[in-house]
Design a protein around this nucleic acid. Structure first.
Length: 578
RNA sequence: GGGGGUAUAGCUCAGCUGGAUAGAGCAACGGCCUUCUAAGCCGUGGGUCUCAGGUUCGAAUCCUGAUACUCCCGCCA
C-alpha cells in the first residue's frame, strides 16, 4: 500500500537499528511542523540516543549515512537537539502523482487482511422523532462505515433501533383511544413529538391510563395479536420518519440494516440461563445481577449489572448481551463498533466484560465503544430549547437548506430555480454534517445555529466550492488529449505542496479507519482544499504554456479525484457548479 | 461518596499519541475581481494552553494535587 509516512518510518527505524545495533527502534516520523523543516521529520533519534547513551546529533549523523541510498529522500538535515528533517525527491512526488491522477487508478488500496466489521450506529428510539442529538451517532457511524468499506473491509451495518419497552405500552394505549377516528390518528402520528408528549402527559396524570399502558406492555411482550398490530403500525410510522431523515442526510442505512431491540427478545431468557450456567449470576434484592470485581460502586461496594428485574422483566444490558452474542458468534465479526454516546461508556464496559466472561464474544473479536460527546447549549449546560424541547433534526436540515438557497440565489442569480434548489440542498445538508464531523467526537460540543449553518471558512461549502472551481477548469479544457503525453512536473511551490497533500490521502484514511475519528479526514480535506485554493490563485492553468498547462491539468484532475472521494467518504455529495 | 470526561485567542474548535516560534474558522481591521467561479486569496491584531507542583534534552500533551463544569453509578433505554 502506498504510504509515504510508513515508508519513511520503516526506512528511518531500520537506519536507527543499523546505526545503534539495537532492534525495534522507532523512527517516529511525523509531518514537518514548519515548511523549512522539510516535508516530514524524524524525531526518534533523540529518544534512542538517550537509551543507548550516545550523543543524539552524532547518532543522527550515522542514521543519515545509513539512509544515503534511497529513492524518496532528496536530502536530510540534522537540526536542533537531533531532529532529522526530510525533504522528498520531486521526481518521486510527480511519479506517484502521475500514477494516481489516472482516472482508472483507485486512490485507496485495500488493506492486506480484510476484517468483518459490525457497526452499530444511529439506533434511534422509535418512541420519538430524531432530534439534533441523533446527528452525531448517525453521521459518524455512516462515515466510518464508508471509510471501512473503502479500505476493503466487510462491513455489516446494524441499526439497533429502540422499539421495545415500557414506553410503547403508553404509546399504544394512546393510539387505541384515538383509534375510533382513523384519519385523525395518522395525522397525529405525523408529529410524533407531540404525540409522545400527549401520551406521556396522560401517563403521568391519568391513573386509569397509566394502568392501561402497563397492561399493554405485558400484553405486547406476551405476544397479544391486537397489541402487536397496533405496535407494528406505530413502529412503521416512526421508521418512516427516520427514513425521511436518512434520505435527507444521505445516510446509507436501509431497512435491511435494521436489527431492532425486539429482534433479541426471544433470546433473552437464554442469555440469563447462559449466565447462570457460567456461575456469573447472583440474586440481589430480588433482581438477577452480575457482579464483577473490576466494577465497584458507592463506598467500594460491588457494582451490579442488572440483567433481570425482580418482576421478571429484562433490561437494556440483557438485550445488549444478546446482540453481542449475535454479532460475535452468529455474524462472526472481527470487530464490533458501537457508535453510541459517551454517557453509556460504563454500561458498555460492563456488558463487554460480561460477554467475555460468559464466552459470548471470543477474545479475537474486538468490542469497541466509539463514544461521542454530548450536545450542550450555549450556556455550556446540556442542550434544550427555551421551551425545554429538543430541536428536531428535520427542522435543522430544512432550515439549513433554506439558508443555503437564499445565499445561492444572492450569489448566483443567473442559475435557474431547479439548479439553485439542487445546490441549496447539497450545500445546506453538507454544511450541517461537516460542522459535526469536523469536531473531535470524544468531546462535548455546543449546539449553535449560526456555526451549524455557516457556509464560510472551514465548512463543507468551502470544499464544495474548491471542487466546483476545479470542475469549471476541467469543463473549459479543450485540449485534454495533450495531458496523456506530457509528464507531471513541478514548476511552483504551490504545485508541489498540492501534489504531496494528495499523496497523503491514503495515510489519512488508514488513521480514520483505525481510530474512528472522522475529524482527521475533515482536517485533511480542508488542508487539501486550502492548498488547491492557493494553487488556483498562484498558478493559472488554462492560460499557461502548453506543457505546464498539461501538467497542471493533471494536478487539478488528481485533486478533483481526491476531493470527490474524500467528501464521499464523509457522506457528502459534490457539485459541478455552485 | 466513587468513577469517567472536559478546561487552549472575544466566540466555536483543531492540535495525528512527548518535539522546534501552540494552529484554523468566525468576529475586528486593511488590501485583491477587464485574467480558469470573491462561498475565494493575501495581510494585521488577538494566548499565563484553568491553577500549583513533578517527570526530562524538550510538556497543551505524561504523573500528582486543586478548582470549575458535565456525565455515569440496582431494577429506564
Amino acid at each position: 500500500m502506498f504510504n509515504i509516512k510508513h515508508a519513511l518510518e520503516e526506512l528511518l527505524s531500520a537506519a536507527i537499528d543499523e546505526a545503534t545495533g539495537l532492534s525495534g527502534s522507532n523512527g517516529n516520523v511525523i509531518y514537518a511542523t514548519r515548511p523549512e523543516f522539510g516535508d516530514y521529520q524524524a524525531n526518534g533519534v533523540m529518544a534512542v540516543a538517550k537509551r543507548a547513551k550516545t550523543n543524539p546529533r552524532e547518532l543522527a549523523a550515522k542514521v543519515l549515512a545509513a539512509i544515503a541510498e534511497n529513492e524518496l529522500i532528496e536530502r536530510a538535515e540534522i537540526a536542533g537537539p537531533g531532529f532529522i528533517n526530510l525533504f522528498l525527491v520531486d521526481d518521486y512526488l510527480t511519479r506517484w502523482g502521475e500514477h494516481y491522477a489516472q482516472n482508472e487508478q483507485p486512490l485507496i488500496e485495500p488493506v492486506a487482511t480484510a476484517q468483518r466489521i459490525v457497526v452499530d450506529y444511529s439506533s434511534p428510539n422509535l418512541a420519538k422523532e430524531m432530534h439534533v442529538g441523533h446527528l452525531r451517532g448517525t453521521i459518524i457511524g455512516d462515515c466510518l462505515v464508508r471509510v471501512l468499506e473503502a479500505s476493503g473491509h466487510e462491513v455489516i451495518r446494524q441499526n439497533h433501533v429502540g422499539d421495545w419497552g415500557t414506553q410503547f405500552g403508553m404509546l399504544i394505549a394512546h393510539m387505541e383511544s384515538l383509534q375510533t377516528e382513523n384519519d385523525k390518528l395518522s395525522l397525529q402520528l405525523s408529529d410524533l413529538e407531540t404525540f409522545y408528549r400527549e401520551a406521556k402527559q396522560r401517563f403521568d396524570n391519568e391513573p386509569g391510563f397509566a394502568e392501561t399502558a402497563r397492561n399493554y406492555v405485558v400484553k405486547l411482550q406476551g405476544g397479544d395479536e391486537d397489541c402487536l398490530q397496533a405496535w407494528r403500525m406505530f413502529i412503521d410510522t416512526s421508521l418512516g420518519h427516520c427514513e425521511s431523515v436518512y434520505e435527507l442526510l444521505g445516510v446509507t442505512l436501509s431497512r435491511a440494516d435494521l436489527k431492532p431491540e425486539s429482534y433479541y427478545n426471544p433470546q433473552l431468557a437464554h442469555i440469563i440461563e447462559s449466565l447462570d450456567d457460567k456461575g456469573l449470576l447472583s440474586i440481589s434484592e430480588g433482581a438477577k445481577c452480575v457482579f464483577m470485581d473490576e466494577f465497584t460502586g458507592k463506598e467500594g461496594a460491588p457494582l451490579p449489572t442488572i440483567v433481570q428485574k425482580s418482576d421478571g422483566g429484562y433490561l437494556y444490558a440483557t438485550t445488549d448481551l444478546a446482540a453481542i452474542e449475535y454479532r460475535a458468534s452468529t455474524l462472526k465479526a472481527d470487530r464490533v463498533l458501537y457508535v453510541v454516546d459517551a454517557r453509556q461508556s460504563l454500561h458498555f464496559q460492563q456488558v463487554f466484560a460480561i460477554a467475555r466472561k460468559a464466552g459470548m464474544a471470543a477474545e479475537s473479536c474486538s468490542l469497541e465503544h466509539i463514544a461521542y460527546g454530548m450536545m450542550m447549549g450555549e450556556d455550556g449546560k446540556p442542550f434544550k430549547t427555551r421551551s425545554g424541547d429538543n430541536v428536531k433534526l428535520v427542522d435543522l436540515l430544512e432550515e439549513s437548506v433554506r439558508r443555503a438557497h437564499a445565499i445561492v440565489s444572492e450569489k448566483n442569480p443567473s442559475l435557474d430555480e431547479e439548479t439553485r434548489a439542487q445546490i441549496a440542498s447539497v450545500v445546506g445538508i453538507s454544511a450541517v454534517k461537516y460542522s459535526d464531523l469536523s469536531k473531535n467526537r470524544t468531546s462535548d460540543y455546543v449546539f449553535d445555529w449560526s456555526t451549524m449553518l455557516s457556509f464560510e471558512g472551514n465548512t463543507a461549502p468551502y470544499m464544495l466550492y474548491a471542487f466546483a472551481r476545479i470542475k469549471s477548469i476541467l469543463r473549459k479544457d479543450e485540449a485534454a488529449e495533450l495531458a496523456g503525453e506530457v509528464n507531471l512536473r513541478i514548476t511552483a511551490e504551490e504545485e508541489r505542496k498540492l501534489i504531496l497533500k494528495n499523496l497523503q490521502f491514503q495515510e489519512t484514511i488508514l488513521v480514520v479507519a483505525q481510530d474512528g475519528l472522522p475529524n482527521y479526514l475533515c482536517a485533511y480535506l480542508y488542508e487539501l482544499a486550502g492548498l488547491f485554493m492557493r494553487f488556483y490563485e498562484a498558478c493559472p492553468v488554462l492560460k499557461a504554456e502548453p506543457e505546464v498547462r498539461a501538467s497542471r491539468l493533471k494536478i487539478v484532475n488528481l485533486t478533483a479525484k481526491t476531493l470527490e472521494k474524500g467528501l464521499s467518504l464523509l457522506g457528502l455529495n459534490t457539485l459541478e457548479k455552485m
